[in-house]
Design a protein around this nucleic acid. Structure first.
Lengths: 139, 139
DNA sequence: CGCGATTATATTGTGCGCAATGTATATTTG
DNA sequence: CAAATATACATTGCGCACAATATAATCGCG
């Protein structure tokens, strides 16, 4: 068979497997905050900028409303974010952290370091990884 | 706020976004075969070795029966694989390609090259990416 | 102003991914 | 050999992802 079709020769399979692996590495850390990984990404955005529309969140995370609407509703249920229609434009839903959600930031500050340690890659490797991936993402 | 919590400073977010992006790049190519990306990975395994147990597939793809059982049933429905209990050990389900599934390999040979082109990364970058990720995966 | 086009979000349906649990079959051990 | 244990797969339930479509609000253009 074609060598290129061998699983061991795939470039994208390690990427796919590693991405899931990383989510698993986050899990024990995020469990303490009661967040999933996509929910954590939303919180990162809201900790930076208190008010964001669904659209803005979607553009930053490359996710559409089919994913975000139910995800944000679950976060609202947990009491960590608010969702309210903009009065200026009734189509827009503005998302913001509640006090509870804002207060979680302190407990999250240790997560990046813990995760980097769990990955077991050097800073150079991490930088290379990020550089290569960002190059492909930007296109 | 902590610099490490900024979305733009995350290492894992680009990985997560890129992994999904790559699946989207595969989509038009795999649509012609009627496969999803995880199903394509299963076919790669079966094209290499005609008979594989659910367990062997799971170990190679890092997926459990909760994912594989329904996925393999869908592939069986499409008529591209067979699932049958081993007579030697009734617990084991042996998966193999049908003639239809085996015949799809020819049409798949062009996919790796097309995908690499779509990624827009140099061979060196692809090699680096694979090396770094594999190092983290092996641990 | 009115109406077609655009925009923002929601809904529906399908397919993963994974934790937790169930069930049947094998294997090990006393 | 029987009971305990381990193994292989299936099932259930939940949370993403994403395509396709729906709905409502706004915008732009004549």
């Amino acid at each position: 068979m074609s060598n290129l079709l061998r699983l061991e020769n795939q470039v994208c399979f390690p990427l796919y497997a590693f991405s899931r692996e990383v989510t698993q590495l986050y899990k024990p850390l995020l469990d303490e905050l009661g967040l999933t990984y996509p929910q954590y990404l939303v919180m990162l955005i809201l900790w930076e900028e208190k008010e964001q529309t669904v659209n803005q969140i979607g553009e930053k995370l490359y996710l559409d409303s089919g994913t975000l609407t139910p995800l944000l509703k679950r976060m609202e249920q947990k009491g960590i974010i608010n969702r309210k229609r903009s009065t200026a434009d009734e189509r827009v839903v503005v998302v913001s952290t509640t006090d509870l959600g804002a207060g979680m930031m302190d407990r999250a500050t240790c997560i990046p370091d813990q995760l980097i340690a769990a990955l077991g890659l050097s800073i150079e490797e991490l930088t290379q990884l990020k550089t290569i991936i960002n190059k492909a993402l930007v296109r």
